[in-house]
Amino acid sequence: MQAIADKQGVKRYLVDVTVNGDDYSVVVKANTLLVNLLRDEIDLTGTKKGCELGDCGSCTVLLDGKPVDACLVLALEADGCDVITIEGVAQHGELDKLQRSFADNAAIQCGYCTPGMILSAKALLTRNPKPTEPEVRAAISGNLCRCTGYVNIVKAVMAAASGEVTA
């Protein structure tokens, strides 16, 4: 990885990362977090910061298809990886079935956990298209929501999986 040092000798690294299908080359410090690369460097603020400790899951993104807390991943670790954020879930303005299902099932209140929830749910449905309710609960158990009691979120994921959501 290319590195250059600043006046104080602190090194900067050039990270090549694909985000939502677009290629970016970004200069970061060794301690730059993926969540800050996304939010500050390429202005994808749909990825939220709620705790910066890996407790809340608000910053969940898909890193090579796997849901990760972007606050626990160094930007350097994402070099050469494929990242999907909430901005990359809808295709050509068409909402994903999970996004529609969240809207239809009143699964959104303040919306702060919503991006992370949808990405955790998306990862689940990709590997297990017909999950049981306990499987849905387990898949989103790393995403905290303070508004909904998860009732309608679980309902929305189940509805999206069962194809109940209208196109």
Binding site: L44, T45, G46, T47, T85, I86, E87, V89, A90, L95, Q99, R100, F102, A103, I108, G111, T114, P115, I118
Partner: peptide, 8 residues
């Protein structure tokens, strides 16, 4: 809803 599910 749309703004919140798309990260906008």
């Amino acid at each position: 809803a749309r703004e919140k599910v798309t990260g906008q």
